[in-house]
Amino acid sequence: MASFIATGCFSFVVYLLLTAGSGRLLGLWSGADLLAGVMIAAVVGWVARGFFCDPRRRAALQPMRWVRAIGYACGPFFLEMAKANVDVAYRVITGRIRPGIVRVRSGMQTDLGVLMLANSITLTPGTLTVGIDEDTNDLFVHMINVPEGIETRESLEAREVFSTFDCPSWIRRIAE
């Protein structure tokens, strides 16, 4: 029931964002729009409640996690992404690459944490998640430029993939 309410509220907020400016009621919305939004959000919340939040863990119900997620996306994540693009620009122009696939210990327990870490790795400098070890939650990461000495090691810590910020601990506070 709680997961149904959380999912329904989230889809209703997205609906309000997309229909803002349609009428004059409450400043921005029309009455028919709000009514349709409530009904659609209820249906979507019922259908998607199992995927959107894990019924045993109530992570999606804590508002602080949402605030931290927004802060993470605007701050460390965006800066790492800008650096990634300068790096890729350098590789495209000079063609100087040294590719390889390494194993990275993620240290995440939940599916959401692994997903966020994999997406963050994909969008940050020179790394791309190729596969995942389902038993240990280890990630296989393709690096466009493997630093000297890394290729002989068995595995890397997740922190070593990011250059400036400690993204894994941010993700742990958001998702676990």
Binding site: M81, P99, L123, L128
Partner: peptide
């Protein structure tokens, strides 16, 4: 320009998204 599918994916995801 890049030689194989993985390095091409690097260019695709990072540069075109940004």
């Amino acid at each position: 320009r890049f030689p194989d599918v993985y390095t091409r994916l690097h260019a695709d995801t990072k540069a075109t998204t940004f």
